[in-house]
């Protein structure tokens, strides 16, 4: 019991911070680029804009290819790339590289779905005013898709939290790594249970905040 407390006191802060770094960096990159790619997919598939079936299927193929790799394999394959980008792949920053690569296509599909679910009539009405695509994005697509995008962000962050444990085990640190190092390898069940409880709490909080936020932006 005392040992558990000592371990947690010494390591929990750093572990949480490392996890936060990995999740937030990759989440941020994934959401920004994922939104752009999702918008791109929507733009090139919607008959009201500029349907380019070939371009769309090429883009879709690349996204599916990345998403079809189990994260464990993607992470290993991307070690040289992480080294190139972050210097040392076995740091939270290095871990964030492969997490980002996984997050982008993941969120792109969610964003595409969020845009595609907008009532086509509303978009058509916007089109009929003579508005350009940027204005339509800003004033129609974004506010109408926002609740779905927020739910997508929640889903992405929670998935990244899970994946970050995997990156942690190859040396990037974080809370998942803490659980494996002490809880599993050193048979300290206390650490393992503590980490599980912390993860459950984090996920609940993120989900709750996301739900409230999505609700706040839904006016229909």
């Amino acid at each position: 019991m005392n040992e558990t407390i000592t371990i947690l006191q010494q390591n929990l802060g750093t572990a949480l911070w490392d996890t936060a770094k990995m999740v937030f960096i990759s989440g941020f990159i994934g959401i920004i680029f994922g939104t752009l790619i999702g918008l791109f997919l929507y733009y090139f598939s919607n008959p009201l804009f500029s349907p380019r079936p070939v371009l769309n299927s090429i883009c879709g193929f690349i996204i599916n290819a990345i998403r079809s790799l189990p994260f464990l394999i993607l992470m290993v394959v991307l070690i040289p790339f992480a080294k190139l980008v972050a210097g040392d792949p076995y740091t939270p920053l290095g871990g964030a590289v492969s997490l980002s690569v996984a997050a982008i296509p993941f969120f792109a599909r969610l964003a595409e779905g969020a845009f595609a679910e907008i009532d086509a009539g509303v978009v058509e009405a916007a089109r009929s005013t003579g508005a350009g695509f940027f204005l339509i994005f800003q004033e129609v697509l974004f506010p109408e898709a926002l609740p779905a995008l927020i739910r997508g962000v929640v889903l992405t962050l929670i998935s990244l939290l899970g994946y970050s444990a995997m990156v942690g085990t190859i040396g990037a640190g974080g809370i998942g790594d803490l659980a494996i190092q002490y809880g599993y390898n050193r048979y300290n069940t206390g650490v393992l249970i503590s980490v599980i409880v912390i993860l459950i709490v984090i996920v609940q909080i993120v989900q709750w905040c996301g739900d409230r936020l999505a609700e706040h932006y839904t006016r229909s």
Binding site: D119, G121, V122, E124, A125, A126, S128, T129, G130, A131, G132, L135, E139, V140, P143, E144, L146, P147, Y217, T218, R219, S220
Partner: peptide, 28 residues
Amino acid sequence: RKIGFIFQNFNLINNRTLAQNLAFALTA
């Protein structure tokens, strides 16, 4: 811009106020 369109299902932007809906058309 010189042709107004009125739809069966109104097609207003649901997550925007009436003023914002009209402001969009004006900006366009």
